[in-house]
Structures are given as structure tokens and as C-alpha cells.
Amino acid sequence: MKARTFSFRRVTSVEEALAAFASCEGEARFLAGGQSLLPALNLRLDAPDLLIDISRVEGMRGVSVSSSGLRIGALTRHVEVLRSPLVAEHASLLSRAAPFVAHPAIRNLGTIGGSLALADPAAEFPTCILALNASLEIAGANGIRTVRADDYFRALYETDIGPGELLTAILIPPPSHGQRVHFDELARRRGDYAIVGLAVNAVIHDSNVKEIRLAFSSVGPIPTRAKTAEAQLIGTFLGAEGIASAQAALANDLSPDGTDEVSSETRMHLARVLLGRSLNALLREDK
């Protein structure tokens, strides 16, 4: 199918982008990499009046590091996240998750900000920023504000970004000493939507779990932390027994809906399998 007609405007600054949105009388959409927006337009699931092309906005792209952590511009493409030495050093969870994001050609155009603004519950980066306790920088009429990932995801495809606001960067706190991260997901085909995915960010000293954040994809309308399982693990020795009780605790944290393809029970089972695999992988790395 083909998209319905719309007007197009390219902007080169955040201010210009916000002004273009504010002055649009109909529905406007920001266009970054377009790898989710274009299919939606082609399928006529979405039919805005105006597309505001932000892909060439200065200062919204690239990765930098400071004492407060890593800053990833919202327009940074998946392939750039995948290959960035700074991301590998300061937020390696994202480097590990990036190969799971769709296919190479999608990664060449799609942006991390686009993925987080869409907030598909099956996507990889939303779980990562939740596990990493990252913050999101959002520009609007009243200037720049930041929101923590824990408060950012609201409902299915709904985030804290208000109408006319623009996600400009992702801020990731510096890695703690003893940080261990892991990302894995189960999908029918490589690059397909995950049946279930898991991002783990932990601090482990001599197999003792000091801190841990577990963020699942595809188990509900938004990326979901398994807080009971986290509490179960913190302060314990990471071993077969602890892993088994964390897996059991998932029953309190997750209640995934069933679909025609995957029942609720299967998804729950696979979430436990994935947690077991991931924690065992951390255990092996700790040794």
C-alpha cells in the first residue's frame, strides 16, 4: 500500500522542530529514521498531515561521555550504537542488545530515540534503558526536562513525551564497580519481534548480588521490571538455588497476555527460561 498524502518539512534545530509542530493545524509527526513510521504510513495505520524531518538536526546525534555518565543523542542510529567504542565501554548492555534489533538494513537507518519514543513493548532498547536506570532528555515549549526510565513508559505505545515535545537524548549513569550486564531474547526468527526478551544490569562482588535490575520485553504493554525477583536476588549468593527462587518469583511480577501464536503460560515459561539462562551467564562471567 501507499501512504496518504502529507506535507513535509525539514528542520535543522530543536527549536525549529518544536515551532513546526506547534504551528501545524492538523496532526504532525516527527520523522527520524522512519523505520517504524514509514511502515505505519505505508499500511495507513497512521496518516498525519505533516511530517517534520528532524534527521538532520544538529547536536541530536552522537555519543559523548562525562563524569555524570554517557549521553546518546536521540538521532544516533542503531548501527552507531552497535559499533560505538564509548557505548561498549560505558553502557555495554546496549552494545549487547543492538544485534537483536531487527535486521542490518533497518539498523542502518533506525535511531535509538525513535525506538524509545515509539516504545514498542517487544523492542530491545526500552528494556535496556529501564535496566540501566537511564534518564531521558525531553525538549518542549518550556525548555528541557529529564525523566527517569522508571517513570517514562506509561501505557502501550504511550510515554511521558507530551504532544509537541521531542526526545533529544538518553543519559546513562556511569557503570558501578562490579557491574555485570546481559541481554538475551527469544524470537521465532532472527530479527523478528521477541516472544520475550530480558535486559539485566547487576552489581556482583564475589558472586554476591549487591544490586540488580531485570527488565523484560513482550510481557505486557510496557517494558516491565521484575521487582519481586530483583528483591529475591539482592543480598544473596548467586547460585542454582537463588536462580530457581528468582525464577519462581517471576509469577508475582509478570502476567503476560496470550496471543494466537504464544499462550500466556508459554510466554511465562519462556520468561523463566530466559532469566535462568541470563543469571547463569552472569555467574559464569563472574568466575
Binding site: 513535509f8 525539514r10 520523522l31 522512519g34 523505520q35 514509514l38 511502515p39 505505508n42 499500511l43 511530517l51 524531518d53 534527521s55 548501527v79 531487527a102 535486521h103 542490518p104 538494513a105 533497518i106 542502518n108 537507518l109
Partner: peptide
């Protein structure tokens, strides 16, 4: 819709789906 890869072209030296990109881009 970016699933089959029949429309791939090289943009600035990198493979992209020409169906998931507007000519104006």
C-alpha cells in the same frame, strides 16, 4: 514494510530499505 529486503539499495554506502525511506529524505 521492511520485512523482505527486495528493495534494498545502498545509501551513502550502507544498505537501506528504499520502501522505508521517502525520496525527499
Amino acid at each position: 514494510m521492511g520485512a523482505c529486503g527486495a528493495c534494498l539499495v545502498s545509501l551513502e554506502g550502507r544498505a537501506v530499505h528504499s520502501c522505508l525511506m521517502l525520496a525527499v529524505q
